Amino acid sequence: MTGEELGRDEENTAVAGPVDADGSAEIGELIGRLSGDDDLDRETRGRLLGRLARLLGQSARKAGAAGVARGKWLTDLLVAAAPHIPIRDLETLRAHHHGLIGEELADSVVRVASNGTTAVGAAGGALAAVEFVAPPLLLTAPAQLAAETLVIAAIEVKMIAELHAVYQVRVDGTGTARGAAFLTSWARQRGVNPLESGSLTSALGSAAKSALRKRLLKTLGRSMSTMGPFLTGAAAGAALNRAATKKLAEHVRKDLRGGADPIKPLPGGYPSVGPADKP
């Protein structure tokens, strides 16, 4: 295996339900591309974020103001986009990071993720500057913030999943169950406990979704910094994203090294981790 997409398996194409025909498929694909390690230039990243923001604007109108305000809309979008997040196994990670192993490989994975969220903040801030000097485009600001928030979340979920691979902490089960596990790990900023036994589930329960929603809204609040006037938003967004990604990585790496108790299943739906599968 040279890599995988989070949440995919033989029976499921998404963590939660089939992709509909209202643009969700393209939204997921854009989030996946923006969360990957491709060396996108600033212009391309900005263009993809702009396209994502337009699609999210259309999606938000269909979701309604109440759903958007409570964060349920963002949560459902991230869960649906999870299968498109490109995750690499240990062998592929080592190949992509010039043969590094152990802590050095983990450092490199975190550095790439930090660079990714930094670039998203910078691109979002630059786009915000253009929008603020063109009043009719102010209406797109909320969708732009949602786009930035979802991509940041996807990059960090990818980082967490790959850190588990680096530290050889196996999270087995179906692709959807693993996807739910890593989404919960991101929401709670903790590593996954590989020793918990119990039945596997392919969907997030109410407690896990609540934690995910709170984390997304917190990230959305951080993204507000990119809406500063002109390029000050770009600088602020880039700096805040880099710091937050590094802090998240520190928490998760501490768990994966065994320095703290990893997260345990939440009531009503956090998927437990079963015995290791044969590769």
Rank of each mutant, 00 (worst) to 15 (best):
A143F: 00
L204K: 10
G191Q: 04
E131F: 15
A165Q: 15
A129D: 05
G198P: 12
V171C: 02
L200W: 07
R170A: 09
S206T: 15
F132H: 14
G179H: 12
L150H: 02
W186C: 00
T140Q: 06
E156R: 01
I155R: 12
P135F: 07
A128S: 15
I155T: 12
H164E: 02
M159P: 03
R190Q: 07
Q189T: 05
P136K: 08
G175M: 13
A181V: 14
A211E: 13
G175S: 12
A161E: 06
E131Y: 09
H164K: 02
P135I: 09
R188H: 01
H164F: 03
V171R: 08
P136H: 09
L150C: 01
G173H: 10
S197Q: 09
L183Q: 08
M159T: 02
P136W: 06
L200A: 15
L212Q: 00
A177R: 15
K209N: 13
R170Y: 09
G175I: 07
E162M: 02
E148W: 03
A211C: 06
S210Y: 07
W186V: 11
A177E: 10
S210N: 12
I155P: 01
R170C: 04
G179I: 11
A134K: 04
R178G: 03
A177G: 15
A141R: 13
M159G: 01
S202H: 10
P136L: 10
A154K: 04
G173L: 14
S199C: 08
G198M: 11
T140A: 11
A211G: 10
S210T: 10
S197R: 13
A207F: 04
D172V: 06
V166A: 02
S206F: 13
L145M: 09
F132E: 14
D172M: 07
L127M: 14
E162H: 03
E131W: 11
V130L: 15
P194T: 06
T149D: 08
V171M: 07
V166P: 03
T184W: 13
L127V: 10
L139S: 09
E156F: 03
A161P: 00
E131C: 10
T201G: 11
E131Q: 10
Q168W: 00
Y167E: 00
R190I: 01
R178H: 12
T184R: 01
A141M: 15
E148M: 11
A180N: 11
V130E: 13
L137P: 03
V169I: 08
L145N: 03
G198N: 00
V157K: 00
I160F: 07
A153D: 10
A147P: 04
V171F: 10
L163H: 02
S202W: 08
A147M: 01
L145G: 13
P135Y: 12
A208C: 04
S197L: 04
G191S: 05
L200D: 12
T176S: 15
L204I: 11
L212W: 09
L145A: 13
D172S: 15
Q189M: 11
A207L: 04
S185M: 00
P135M: 12
R190D: 03
Q189A: 06
H164M: 04
S206I: 12
A141E: 14
W186K: 09
G191A: 05
T174C: 03
